[in-house]
Design a protein around this nucleic acid. Structure first.
Length: 380
DNA sequence: TAGGTGTTTCCTGTTT
DNA sequence: TAAACAGGAAACACCT
């Protein structure tokens, strides 16, 4: 099932995994290093009480900046004493925000501001509430988001928190059928992974902007196997579906030919191409490096992958589709699946970047041409 | 601009 | 029966 929010979560994850560009600071931080700044130590720079870009976006699509901007707007509007707030409560993205109940908002921001925020949030959501009937998160996604929330608000305990995920809905624009979307595992990843891994891929902002333009409309969804009659395609705003392209070409849906079909030239697709070209992925970050980076930070990968034999470089995918989605987000490709990822992995056999591990599913081994994963290299 | 590289996409068939 | 594996084929995007 589609999930632009999960896509955003992935963007966040990738932005944190591979922070390539400085984020636009909405806040001027004056707090000393080493501790999270209190809200009173910051100045909202959202044009003082003017609505920011958040007003133009579905709350579920808000970035952390959008959320901060939104909170800042209401702090200003209500002349609320910002010193009473904790910045930790403001550090969330839209999807997380939308899972929070009114009671929780009140407990976080106080009755006055909390209620105001809740009211504003509901209003905003109502503005963008379209066809949410079939876009609820799957149970596993809810579980995963629950984890996200636990990670995001570790300081919030007790019954007041309530069932935060009850209200989670997702948008239909970016199909992503994977049930293992546990991407905010990386929410706290900031600057944790190997610095070399930052090769100028995505920034959160750009990922978000691109997704806003429809750049990531998903041409196929992994679990559906995307049959030609998949109604999802006909509802896509832009004709980015390769299958659709084939259909249009031949008139009658038939077996498509081998290989990657040429992409269509619709206006939407031009936009897509533009977005991609303007933010190309430079060399340096390869799939195997991406995999390696997840592996060499076991304390952060939260069960996506694990070492089977650290010394020999044998590892296993625990959440294969989640890893694939994460990789897809990194490459701005929302239709990435484990099947495709694994094909790319298999090409590494020839180059001896990976070695085959026979008889074991989801298990691979680094080959002699891979680097940076050995204990001697990483130091741990 | 052409060629190389590294995927990405899709496929059929096989194995677990 | 589904998921994963295997590998051919071709397209695509980026780099040199």
């Amino acid at each position: 099932m589609a999930s632009s929010e999960l896509s955003l979560i992935l963007n966040n994850a990738n932005a944190n995994l591979y922070p390539s560009e400085p984020q636009t600071n909405l806040l001027s931080m004056t707090a000393p290093m080493g501790r999270p700044p209190h809200l009173s130590e910051m100045t909202f720079s959202s044009n003082n009480s003017t609505m920011g870009s958040w007003d133009q976006v579905n709350p579920q699509m808000w970035t952390r900046q959008n959320v901060l901007e939104w909170i800042g707007f209401h702090v200003e509007e209500s002349r609320f004493d910002a010193s009473l707030l904790n910045i930790n409560y403001c550090n969330m993205d839209g999807i997380t925000l939308c899972t929070i109940s009114k009671e929780t908002l009140v407990s976080m921001f106080g009755s006055m501001l909390g209620e105001r925020l809740h009211h504003s949030l509901e209003s905003q959501r109502a503005r963008y509430a379209t066809d949410l009937s079939d876009t609820c998160l799957s149970e596993s996604e809810l579980d995963l988001l629950d984890n996200i929330l636990q990670n995001s608000f570790p300081y919030m305990h007790g019954p007041s928190l309530g069932p935060l995920l009850e209200t989670v809905v997702v948008q239909p624009s970016i199909p992503s059928d994977n049930s293992e979307n546990n991407y905010s595992y990386f929410d706290e990843y900031t600057n944790q992974l190997t610095p070399e891994s930052d090769h100028g891929y995505d920034s959160l902002t750009e990922s978000f902007q691109s997704s806003q333009t429809g750049s990531f409309l998903n041409p196929s969804s992994p679990d559906s196997n995307s049959s030609d009659s998949d109604p999802e395609y006909s509802e896509m705003p832009y004709s980015t579906s390769t299958k659709k392209f084939v259909k249009q070409e031949s008139g009658e849906p038939k077996k498509r030919g081998r290989g990657r079909p040429p992409k269509c030239q619709s206006e939407g697709y031009d936009h897509f191409i533009q977005a991609k070209k303007s933010k190309h992925a430079p060399r340096g970050t390869h799939l195997w490096e991406f995999i390696r980076d997840i592996l060499i930070h076991p304390e952060k990968n939260h069960g996506l992958m694990k070492w089977e034999d650290r010394r020999d470089g044998v590892f296993k995918f625990l959440k294969s589709e989640a890893v694939a989605q994460l990789w897809g987000q990194k490459k701005k490709n929302s239709s990435m699946t484990y099947e495709k990822l694994s094909r790319a992995m298999r090409y590494y056999y020839k180059r001896e970047i990976l070695e085959r591990v026979d008889g074991r599913r989801l298990v691979y081994k680094f080959g002699k041409n891979s680097t940076g994963w050995r204990i001697e290299e990483t130091g741990y």
